[in-house]
Simulated scan of single mutants.
Amino acid sequence: MATSVLALAIASYISLHPAFLLPPIGLLCYDILCQQQTPPAESGSAPTAKKVAVDQRALPKAIPFAIQLTLMFFAATLFLFSLSRLILTSWQFIPSVYLTPLQLPDLTPNPGLWWYFFIEMFDAFRSFFLGVFWLHMLSYSIPFCLRLRNQPLAAMVLMLGVINVFQPYANAGDAGAWLSSLCLLGHSFEGNSINPTAVSSLHRYSFPALAALLYCTLLGPAFHHLWIYAGSGNANFFYAITLVWNLAQLILLTDTLYAVLRDEWESERPEGKGREVRQI
């Protein structure tokens, strides 16, 4: 737990967005702690039997654990702030690093969704929509933890995807990190027993999403060059391709969420594995 909290504090010290991962990482640490305190005789049993056999009173309390984790995170972040103040002898790094994504002063074109929207925004509404955009990104963390409380790793990966899509200054590095983290959910990419040639039995739109990402990877730099350097295009060229880029990531994100929920449902109801299900 201490290692993960320290790593998250370092990431949040560099940028604000990793702080949104505190709830899913805390849920993951709590799940690992509960597994470590499970008696050996029960840990080897079936998953469904283990849930019934484990005495909930023997498990660590969730609220004290959450308070301890939060205090450790803020203590580590405060230590990093103090160290920066000691080295720089000034607090100027705080507005430079943390107020920049909050206030969005630089509207240089990037693969994100914010820059074009706030270029067209009237100054009177700028503060309101900045708050709305940040609250929108923040609003996913707790619901993911509540719905995917039995799969905290999936909640963390999905929250990484949300941060990647909706952060103010998006970049290709964050997209690559999130796409790489999908390998952690390898159980949702298992082959289909009905159609063994299928890439996945749970993902439905992975091919169109990946094809759109490849399409944008090739055309995005071309449209940016035509607009900025060649002068033969305009902002709509580049912003249109960024919309397609983020739409493809959102399709992959929602498809991954569906795959995780479908895998959880099939684990609880093995008789429905591989069958088409319709919610009524």
Rank of each mutant, 00 (worst) to 15 (best):
N110S: 15
A11S: 14
Y229M: 04
G44D: 04
F81T: 02
L138I: 07
A58Y: 09
L8D: 07
S90A: 08
M72G: 00
P111Y: 08
N236Y: 11
A66Q: 10
T217N: 14
A53L: 15
V157Q: 05
S12K: 09
E190N: 12
G173V: 13
A172S: 14
A222I: 15
I280R: 13
A62S: 11
L138Y: 07
N150L: 12
F81C: 11
A230W: 08
S45A: 13
T100H: 10
S201R: 15
L130D: 05
P95R: 11
V54H: 10
A177P: 01
V157N: 05
F237T: 00
L104Y: 14
L138R: 07
H224P: 03
I63E: 07
S15A: 15
I163K: 06
V54R: 15
T70H: 03
F133W: 06
L88C: 00
L107Q: 06
N164K: 08
N195A: 13
G176T: 08
P105W: 13
S90N: 10
L33I: 10
A177R: 14
W178H: 05
F65W: 12
S188M: 05
A76R: 02
E264H: 08
E42G: 06
L27D: 03
V162P: 00
L184P: 00
L214P: 04
R275T: 10
A62V: 12
G231T: 02
F79W: 07
W227H: 08
G231H: 02
F20I: 00
F133V: 05
F65T: 01
C29S: 14
G26I: 01
P196W: 02
W178V: 04
Y205W: 13
Y98W: 08
V97S: 04
S193I: 06
S200C: 05
A222V: 12
A49P: 02
F144K: 02
N246F: 01
G233A: 15
E266V: 01
L219A: 08
V52N: 11
W114N: 03
D255Y: 05
D106K: 14
A66V: 08
H17F: 09
E264K: 09
S188Q: 00
Y215M: 09
G112Q: 02
P39M: 04
N171T: 05
C216H: 01
L257D: 05
T242R: 04
